[in-house]
């Protein structure tokens, strides 16, 4: 797995693509999928959370990012003032630390 690419699941029958996997395609109920990858997208919307769950930093910027073909993902945005429409790229990093356990995963960072 590349840490600078987001892996998504594309239906082999109809091409419908989602970042989270499904056992059946939400569009055509097909059961065959191929992996596709995304590197860069645009911020569709975001929020700055002042009230976060235990283990997550405050404030926490969560962005909904849109990639090609309207494929979307939600993730933490680091390293920039968030702005609707701004270009971000896929990265990887620490998401939370709870009772000494560090969780890592998808992050977004500014593309430029």
């Amino acid at each position: 797995m590349s840490l600078t690419e987001l892996t998504a699941s594309m239906c082999s029958s109809c091409g419908h693509t989602t970042v989270y996997t499904h056992s059946r395609c939400p569009n055509c109920r097909g059961v065959g999928f191929v992996e596709v990858r995304f590197k860069e997208g645009r911020v569709l919307t975001y929020t700055i959370l002042s009230a976060t769950r235990p283990g997550f930093g405050r404030p926490l910027i969560l962005a909904m990012v849109e990639f090609e073909n309207a494929v979307r993902a939600v993730g933490q945005l680091d390293g920039a003032e968030p702005r609707t429409g701004s270009r971000v790229r896929v990265s990887h990093g620490q998401l939370s630390e709870k009772e000494g356990v560090i969780s890592t995963g998808l992050k977004f960072v500014p593309a430029d």
Binding site: L49, A63, Q76
Partner: peptide, 13 residues
């Protein structure tokens, strides 16, 4: 895992 709460969906929406 990302730290999502219902509050964050509300803010984004």
């Amino acid at each position: 895992k990302q730290g999502i709460t219902l509050l964050s969906f509300a803010g984004m929406t």
